[in-house]
Design a protein around this nucleic acid. Structure first.
Lengths: 251, 251
DNA sequence: GTTGTTTTGGAATTTTTATTCCATTCCGTC
DNA sequence: GACGGAATGGAATAAAAATTCCAAAACAAC
């Protein structure tokens, strides 16, 4: 795991890997400055890679430099035409679905609801997050972000069919995420929270969702499906924004 | 429109116009050779265009080359300094980061690697998926999709610190997902799979990732971070495409 | 601590590349 | 076909970049 390269060489490796597109158009000095190493370190790095020096490596990149990768739209078309059903074509579809979702989210996001949600959640003690099945990745990421931001949060993940509804305490709040077909367990927890008078923030796909009735504040996400699967891009973007806003409102 | 230029200068103009994308990565001598003029003619051409010389013109093209990397780290810093952004502003940032990531993914995706990954995974018996911390949402979604498509898959989620490495059987394959800072457990499982001769498909952030060495096939995802958090849009798009391709390849 | 080894930074050197300069050629005009 | 001004090519020079090298620093093993 720890193929431990010397410090400077590791810096070179990381910077170069993260900026492959700049190699062709930069000088040793520029790249070295970017990687925050002296030029000689970068030279050493090139040699360890098996090139005679930087120039040889650069020559490779300059030749490979296919006239600036085609712009996004062209490339997408290429991917799609690459035989329907090919992995590349599928990728293009999902990329497009994701982009569309994000675009719609940006257009349709309800700022007032978002602000209200942040207020509720910033005031609460512990945040209870629930999302199952395809909402589970979102719920788990939310919880991860809360943990990183030192916001007390609990993920109700249903492991072992354990039910933790009694963990809901006065002063807490609940974030419930579910999409059609709505998950009973999620709705049940939201209901429980509501009946205890806790704020419930619902993230769902439409205002007519059963979750809407159970929520103090509803955030709807226009996710574009491709085939049977949704991209989650928009849902995740909304969730992270929510989490970060809460995190900074809290401290 | 064209006050008639002297012959050599005309050649320069034509060649340069037709090869704007090569300017950034070529020397005077190379371009001159391409235009079939002596280097000095090209120099004159640059000066007539109003540059002090070739270098100045090239600098322009080199900078223009890398179109958009408006780096998000500085933007977040700015945002933070301007007082915490409103939730809506944050949302806009995450939407933008997601869009950029998807765009980059479409541009840079390695079709060959993707196809290869699908081939390996379509042939395998059980698919072992591992991804922890911020890669966990991806791993869990992958597993969800596999389940829906009736592809035998097992999520190594580390619940209860249980280690299931002996679940890896001959004929199986492993999908490992990790981003810097790389998770030891993920690398350990990948290593284990590799040493048993199972195909390992790595999804990671750069080719220098320690996961790369452990993988039969590496898929790199250019995820644009906003602040400390990544959008996961691109990673999810790639993962779903992978899963669906595998599902349909299996029948 | 001492010793031997690896790593590092920067100054010195070499190579490559850009740029200038000028003698020569070309071309239109008389 | 002689003249003058523009255009040209290549050799000479300047600038910039790459590459090497070595003394100092960091590190590891004893």
């Amino acid at each position: 795991m720890t193929e431990t390269l010397p410090k400077r060489l590791r810096q070179c490796a990381d910077y170069i890997a993260a900026n492959t597109d700049r190699i062709a158009v930069s000088t040793v000095a520029e790249l070295a400055a970017g990687a925050d190493v002296p030029p000689s370190a970068l030279m050493r790095f090139c040699q360890i890679l098996g090139f005679s020096g930087f120039s040889e490596m650069q020559r490779l990149f300059r030749e490979a430099y296919s006239p600036g990768w085609p712009d996004y739209t062209t490339r997408l078309t290429n991917l799609k035409e690459n035989g329907a059903g090919s992995p590349a074509a599928l990728l293009a579809e999902f990329v497009e679905a994701g982009r569309l979702s994000l675009e719609q989210l940006a257009k349709s996001a309800d700022e007032a609801a978002l602000t209200q949600a942040v207020q509720h959640l910033a005031r609460a003690d512990t945040l209870h997050v629930i999302g199952l099945r395809r909402a589970y990745p979102v719920a788990s990421y939310l919880t991860y972000v809360f943990e990183k931001m030192q916001v007390p949060a609990m993920l109700h993940d249903g492991v072992g069919k354990l039910d933790h509804r009694h963990a809901l305490r006065p002063g807490d709040a609940c974030i419930a995420i579910t999409f059609a077909p709505y998950s009973d367990e999620t709705l049940a927890l939201a209901q429980d929270a509501q009946s205890r008078g806790l704020p419930v923030i619902g993230i769902t796909d439409r205002v007519t969702s059963p979750l809407a009735r159970l929520s103090t504040t509803v955030l709807t996400v226009p996710e574009v499906d491709f085939g049977a699967f949704r991209s989650l891009s928009a849902t995740l973007a909304l969730s992270i924004a929510l989490a970060v806003a809460i995190g900074s409102a809290r401290g």
